[in-house]
Simulated scan of single mutants.
Amino acid sequence: MKVIRSKEYTASQAWGAQDIANMNGISTRLHWTNKPYKWHVNDGEEVFVVLDGMVDMFYKQAGQELSTCLNVGDIFYASIGTEHVAHPVGEARILVIEQQGSI
């Protein structure tokens, strides 16, 4: 049993994470960040939920770079092969659900 107050979570570095659960190889982690990540493609699917703050999500689709602004409660689903990068606007707290060990 855990109660996690996501708004209170901070990390010592950008994209630091608190592990919440690992269910049959699927990890759920709470991330805190104030800096962009890097362009990447996950090893599998990824669900990205903004819990606090705002995130500009950049992604590539059919060779074209696109972006969308994610606010609290918004969910970004990256299917297999979706190249993407998250740029927080200030601080953000994000719930990420993905295959364990994925980048």
Rank of each mutant, 00 (worst) to 15 (best):
V85Q: 13
A92Y: 09
H87T: 09
V41D: 01
V89F: 02
S6G: 05
S27V: 07
V72P: 03
N24M: 12
A86F: 00
T82V: 15
D52G: 00
G44R: 04
Q18Y: 07
M54G: 02
Q64H: 08
L51D: 04
R29G: 00
Q13V: 08
M57I: 13
M1H: 12
V89L: 11
E98V: 11
Q100D: 15
R93G: 03
T28Y: 03
G90L: 08
G53R: 07
I4A: 08
Q64D: 07
Y59E: 03
E46H: 05
G53L: 04
Q99C: 05
F48P: 01
D74N: 14
A92N: 10
T10A: 09
N34W: 00
S102E: 03
Q64R: 10
H31Y: 15
I94Q: 01
E45G: 12
R93V: 05
K60L: 03
K60D: 07
E83I: 08
V3L: 15
C69M: 12
T10S: 12
E91Q: 14
D74T: 06
H40A: 07
S79P: 10
D56Y: 02
F58R: 07
R5I: 12
F58V: 00
T33R: 00
G16A: 04
K35D: 03
L66T: 01
G25R: 09
D52Q: 06
R93L: 04
V72M: 12
L51K: 08
K35N: 05
G63F: 04
A11R: 03
S79H: 13
I75A: 11
T28K: 01
H84V: 09
A17D: 06
Y37D: 11
V89A: 05
K2R: 15
I26Y: 03
Q99P: 09
A21M: 10
G16F: 00
D52P: 01
F48L: 05
H84I: 10
G53M: 07
T68V: 13
E91T: 12
A62H: 10
D19G: 14
Q100Y: 11
N22D: 13
V49C: 08
V72G: 03
W39I: 03
V49G: 01
V85S: 06
E46R: 04
G25W: 09
H40M: 07
V55Q: 05
V85K: 14
I75Q: 09
I4P: 02
Q99K: 15
V49A: 05
R29E: 02
